Simulated scan of single mutants.
Amino acid sequence: MHMNSAPHLLTEDRPEFDRLLDEALRTAHERPELATLGERLNAEQLRTMAIGASALLTAAAAAEYDHYVKLRGERRDEVLSTPGSAGDQGAGQQGEDGAGVSAVVAVLAPVLAGTAMLIFLLVGYVLKAVEPEPAFANTMLTAGWLFGALTVVSLLFAVIGLLVTAVRNRATEVVAEDESDAIPDEVARAREAWRHALLERGILPFLRDALADPSTAPAYPAPHTPKAGRIPNLGYTRPDFTSPGSPSQGPRPGYTPPDFTSPDFSSPDGGTQ
């Protein structure tokens, strides 16, 4: 039986299993039943074993998980079916796109203006050093200083724009947090019930039994069925394997050596010995 993954656990909930397992191992020193951690098995070995048996561990909280997934799916269906929700999301996306374009312009404008200023000023002063001085040397210098002023102004607007964007993003984050807090209590309670059941009936008993079994191996081989005592009783019985035969199941096959007889020899005088 392969136990590298939990068949009924959705991909989006797999990180939650890993977080609960890591948290249990991190706080093992606070639990008397896990006080022997590090004597025969370290945290990494236990984590490998638990991940290999994740199907059994998550099965301990299957009822709570199914209830949580059902409520969560119903909540998502309600949100998607709410009139205007898609339009609001589209408008929000357009607003984000507009803010992104404005931010790009605010960043590029000072750079372009500053580059133009340097070019015009450099060319203008080079021309003024030439004899005779070209008539448009002063024009190049004037353009350079105009781009210099434009650079200062664009920098000022860029700073103001970045501040405004930061304030808007902060307001959006607050709204998002408020929306997350508005998740129905029923879904939140179902999620917490699943987490509690997974930890108390799945992960912790597994770790406790693995530490208590003196014959526990350093790593849990996923392809094999665990030995009795390594995992909590989760309603799973391992198959009863028997060897093809044992000495007590029947008589051992006998062996009879071949019967060899010596050949007959005659004496020199023709008599038979």
Score class of each variant (00 low, 15 high):
207 L>W: 00
22 D>P: 03
171 A>G: 11
221 P>C: 05
134 P>H: 03
120 F>E: 06
65 Y>A: 05
224 H>G: 10
126 V>R: 14
15 P>V: 00
19 R>P: 06
94 Q>L: 15
91 A>N: 09
115 T>H: 09
169 N>K: 14
227 K>C: 05
4 N>F: 10
142 T>W: 10
121 L>Q: 01
36 T>S: 15
67 H>S: 12
228 A>Q: 14
73 G>S: 06
161 G>K: 05
162 L>D: 08
49 M>G: 14
77 D>T: 12
87 G>S: 12
7 P>Q: 08
270 G>W: 03
105 V>H: 14
135 A>W: 05
45 Q>V: 05
252 R>T: 14
115 T>F: 14
129 A>G: 15
76 R>Y: 15
102 S>G: 15
201 R>F: 04
27 T>W: 06
266 S>K: 13
168 R>H: 13
160 I>W: 09
99 A>N: 11
214 P>M: 05
193 A>L: 06
132 P>H: 03
25 L>Q: 00
121 L>W: 01
36 T>L: 10
104 V>F: 13
182 A>R: 08
59 A>L: 13
198 L>P: 02
86 A>R: 06
247 P>F: 01
71 L>P: 02
51 I>K: 13
71 L>E: 06
239 P>F: 04
78 E>K: 10
162 L>A: 14
3 M>G: 15
131 E>A: 14
10 L>V: 10
17 F>K: 00
172 T>D: 12
137 A>Q: 01
234 L>Y: 13
71 L>K: 06
259 D>L: 09
84 G>M: 02
91 A>T: 08
232 P>I: 05
29 H>W: 12
196 H>L: 12
267 S>F: 10
33 E>Y: 03
198 L>M: 05
165 T>G: 14
97 D>P: 07
158 A>F: 02
109 A>V: 07
45 Q>E: 01
210 A>F: 02
69 V>M: 12
21 L>M: 03
168 R>I: 02
201 R>S: 08
199 L>T: 13
4 N>H: 13
263 P>K: 02
93 Q>P: 07
82 T>I: 06
161 G>P: 03
20 L>D: 07
21 L>V: 00
91 A>P: 02
252 R>D: 14
73 G>E: 09
108 L>R: 12
224 H>M: 14
148 G>T: 06
126 V>A: 15
273 Q>P: 13
267 S>A: 15
148 G>V: 07
19 R>M: 11
107 V>C: 07
19 R>Y: 06
209 D>R: 11
37 L>Q: 00
164 V>E: 07
213 D>K: 00
207 L>H: 01
232 P>S: 08
98 G>M: 11
269 D>Y: 03
137 A>F: 01
204 L>S: 01
71 L>V: 01
84 G>L: 04
255 Y>G: 09
123 V>D: 08
206 F>G: 08
8 H>R: 08
71 L>M: 05
219 A>R: 12
70 K>I: 09
210 A>E: 02
200 E>C: 07
145 W>E: 08
199 L>W: 11
84 G>S: 00
228 A>P: 08
10 L>E: 15
231 I>Q: 13
191 R>D: 09
58 T>V: 04
244 P>E: 10
106 A>E: 11
14 R>W: 06
226 P>V: 03
208 R>W: 07
240 D>N: 12
241 F>K: 07
170 R>P: 02
257 P>S: 08
224 H>A: 13
229 G>A: 04
105 V>T: 14
